[in-house]
Every structure is written in C-alpha cells, then in structure tokens.
C-alpha cells in the first residue's frame, strides 16, 4: 500500500510540473484582465523550441529557449488584445490553431512526422539520504524543474498578494480605470501579466519535451494547456489554488494510469474513459456548485481597456 502510494506520488511529481507552470502562469494573465485560452499554443511553442534548441546547446539552455518561445507567442496575444483590443478568446483560439499547425508543419519539415530527434534529457537530481526513506523516496530523482514547480507557486502567490506590483496587477484586472487614475499604466501591467503567462506556459511545454520525454512529439501538449486553464479557474484565479488544482489533476491522471496498470481488472467496473473524464466532470460540478455569487473571476476579465471610454 505504502509502495503503491509512493509510486503514485512519484509519477505525480514527474507529470505535474508542466501543468503547474502553465496554470500558475495563466493566473498572471487573467489577473491582469486578459483571458488566456492560448496557453495550449504557448506550451506547444515552448515544447518545440526547447526540444529543437537542446539539439545544439545544453538542455537547460534549451529550456530557456522554450520559455522565450512561449513568451513570443504570448507577445502576439498581448499586442492583439491590449493594443488591438481584439476579442481575447478569439485571439487565443487563433494562436492555438496556428501553433498546432505550425508545430506539425515545422516538425515535418525538419524531422520525422512523429517526433523530433532525441536530445539529452534534463539530468535528474539525487537527493542524498532521500533514497533510503520510504515515501520520501518519491521526492528523489526528479529533474530540477519538478523542484522549481514546488517552489514557484509560493513565490508567485507572494508576488501577487504581498507586493505593491501584485496589488496593481490585481487592481488592473478588477477596475483598470482606477489604476489609470493612479497614474499607473494599464497596458504595461497587462503586457507584463500576459508575458509572464507565456514564459511559464513555455516552461511548462519545455518540461514535456526535455524532462518528461526527450523529444518533441507531434501531439504535444495534447490538451494540457486547456487543463491548465481549467486548473486556474478551479483554483479560483490564485497561484496557489491553480497549482493545487494542477497537482490534483496530475495526481488523478497518475492514479488512473497506476490503477489500470496494477489492477487491470478494474476496467471491467470502471472504463478507462470514465476515469479520463473524471477531472473534467469534477471541474464542472465544482463550478456549478460555486454558482454565480461565488465566482472570483477578475471583474474586468476579457474587457479591453479603452482610456477614451470610462
């Protein structure tokens, strides 16, 4: 039993970072008032760029390239939404479509249709002493990004809730006009929010192609970006909540994989598809249960700021 739990914990910790980074990132964008359904596309860009860059440079630098790529996609989103006052959902969806097709196209042009050439995976850290203790062993032998994913949500939470900048970021998502009156640039704060979101989504994508696997595969990130958005909503637009929800989703997934491999009989009672659908159904149920009043979405979410109209 303990061993099973340990194995579950281990695979959760291995799979969660991608989702955690993307979900925490999404809170920055949405807190500033810009809807980000383009996380999927940003993750794809990050995963691709990291895997390609790591072919010619050390893998950690490749991960940085992934972040830059994610930021680049986010920059397009930011310019369209903030300067262009475009419909934020449309822009996000369009970016997803473009990145999906572009990723496939570049993959075909540069590598084979199914995946890119293998790279050196990120090295896994060995924590002295941890490999002897049961349960704690699960914390052992992960890539640095897993440990970063454990720390980052707290840092992000502190940044959003304990710094003047965080206060402004939240304010700009609630009532941008008030922030503008204070003499603070609405656009600048929103750009920062969206770009942070892109960098973290890119990092999340890079996790997939440099830590979880050792190459970019054609279907990456296969819906994880949408999951990240769901986790962010589930976590009520707070970094810690988003990270918690992301970890929960990852655990659910690990549980599903663990159950079906260790107890194959279970598929007679609970079909694979039901287990797969569970996190989504759960999200819906929670959202429906929270109802209208309890929604903690930023008030100005999705509304472009127009300084000529108050």
């Amino acid at each position: 039993m303990l061993e099973l739990f340990e194995a579950l914990l281990y695979s959760t910790l291995d799979a969660a970072p991608a989702l955690v980074f993307a979900a925490v990132g999404a809170t920055f964008s949405e807190r500033s008032g810009v809807v980000n359904v383009g996380v999927e596309g940003m993750m794809r860009a990050g995963a691709f760029a990291a895997a390609v860059a790591a072919l010619v440079m050390p893998t950690p630098l490749g991960v940085l390239c992934g972040m830059v790529a994610g930021t680049g996609v986010a920059a397009i989103h930011a310019v369209l939404c903030i300067r262009g006052r475009a419909d934020q959902v449309v822009s996000g969806i369009a970016l997803n479509l473009v990145m999906l097709a572009l990723g496939t196209f570049l993959l075909e042009a540069l590598f084979t249709p199914s995946g890119s050439t293998s790279i050196a995976q990120l090295s896994r850290w060995t924590l002295p002493g941890f490999d002897k203790v049961p349960l704690l062993r699960a914390l052992h032998n992960h890539s640095a990004l897993t440990y970063l994913a454990m720390v980052l949500p707290f840092v992000a939470h502190a940044a959003v809730y304990r710094t003047p900048w965080g206060l402004r970021l939240r304010a700009v998502g609630e009532k941008p006009a008030a922030v503008a009156v204070m003499g603070v640039s609405v656009a600048q704060l929103r750009y920062t929010g969206v770009l942070i979101s892109g960098a973290l989504a890119g990092l999340g994508g890079a996790v997939l192609s440099t830590a979880t696997l050792d190459r970019f595969e054609h279907h990456m990130p296969s819906g994880l970006g949408f999951m990240a958005v769901a986790a962010m909503i589930f976590g009520r637009w707070t970094p810690l909540g988003a990270a918690g929800a992301a970890a929960f989703f990852a655990f659910g997934n690990a549980l599903r994989i663990g159950l079906t491999s260790s107890l194959p009989e279970i598929s007679h009672y609970l079909p694979q598809g039901v287990l797969l659908a569970l996190p989504y159904v759960l999200t819906l149920v929670v959202l429906a249960w929270q109802g209208k009043g309890a929604s903690s979405a930023p008030a100005a979410l999705g509304v472009p700021y127009n300084s000529e109209r108050r």
Binding site: Q272, G273, V274, A277, V281, T283, L287
Partner: peptide, 28 residues
C-alpha cells in the same frame, strides 16, 4: 442556471466527450 461561463463548460464538455465516446463507448 449556475452561471458557469460557456467557454469553460464547453471546453470541459469537449474533453468529457472525447473520454467517454472514444475511450469508453467506441472501444468498449
């Protein structure tokens, strides 16, 4: 009735449909 934004609920329902139809009904 419950104020769940349709963008979110339909994204979720898409995944539910994939899981239930393609990973359960069609294979089961």
């Amino acid at each position: 009735a419950r104020g769940v934004h349709e963008v979110i609920s339909t994204i979720m329902l898409n995944w539910v449909a994939v899981s239930v139809v393609e990973n359960w009904w069609v294979t089961g």
